[in-house]
């Protein structure tokens, strides 16, 4: 497939969709569906006259802190649990329960402990994101290849190098899968914790717009959230592709073979 065709395929439908939206709402007088042209016009003034630093960046900072803490915590605990049969047996049903609790209900609980400040929001994000990372790490550590483990033992790899070179690397595809799930949960929790109780943030701002019936602004907020989701998932993909290039290659060679 040549590059031109590729770009055409990549952009055709998105462009068509946006054009359709534009056309369908052009001249719209419906209060809830303002013309896309109007939304686009308000986007800049809504977000780039102070709100970006006042709302978007604080949201993203909380997300980043909470998310990274959750990944570290999840990988650490997951490795410990995955390596010990007893620990796994002991904690499996408990983890199963915690995982099954929809994480947004943690917001009211954590508000009791941590008030409504930044700590609460970061805690909410940590407590929601940690489960997919943890459970996937457990699975990844458990599914490590037996022959590879034996090889590491035969060559007398020390505990530390076994952890770094065998366990964490070996589990990294699953860890990445967990981290990807955690990212979308993290974004949801970022928004929800702000909708619940906050004085700044994207989620807070959008709800304010909605309550004050600033409809075009509300639409720009929805678009803003969408863009955040898309950009973060693109960044995640780039990082993942770098870290897991060996895995992609391995999978491809297995598929051919």
């Amino acid at each position: 497939m040549d590059a031109g065709r590729k770009i055409l395929l990549l952009l055709a439908v998105p462009v068509l969709l946006i054009a359709a939206w534009w056309a369908a709402t052009a001249g719209s007088t419906n209060f809830f569906w303002p013309p896309l042209a109007q939304i686009a016009g308000t986007f800049g003034e809504t977000w780039f006259t102070g709100r970006f630093t006042a709302d978007v960046l604080p949201s993203l900072a909380r997300l980043l802190v909470g998310y990274l803490a959750a990944v570290v915590l999840g990988v650490g605990l997951g490795t410990a649990i995955g390596s010990s049969r007893t620990l796994r047996g002991l904690l499996e049903p408990v983890l199963e329960f915690f995982r099954a609790i929809p994480s947004p209900v943690l917001v009211p609980i954590l508000m009791l402990f941590a008030g409504i400040g930044n700590e609460m929001k970061v805690l909410v994000i940590v407590s929601g994101c940690v489960w997919p990372v943890l459970l996937n790490t457990v699975e990844g550590v458990r599914a490590l290849d037996e022959v590879l483990r034996d090889t590491a033992r035969c060559y007398r790899l020390r505990r530390r190098s076994r952890l770094i070179h065998l366990v964490l690397r070996g589990a990294s595809p699953q860890i990445a899968a967990g981290a990807r799930q955690a990212l979308s949960i993290g974004i949801i929790l970022m928004v929800i914790s702000e909708m619940f109780a906050a004085s700044n943030g994207v989620g807070f701002t959008i709800i304010q717009f909605q309550r004050s019936f600033a409809i075009p602004q509300m639409w720009t907020g929805i678009i803003m959230l969408g863009l955040i989701g898309i950009v973060l998932s693109l960044i995640f993909r780039v990082v993942e592709a770098r870290l897991l290039s060996w895995y992609t290659g391995l999978r491809m060679s297995q598929r051919e073979g």
Partner: peptide, 9 residues
């Protein structure tokens, strides 16, 4: 990747 909660309002 557009978060579903964006649709809440």
């Amino acid at each position: 990747p557009i978060p579903s909660v964006a649709l809440i309002p």
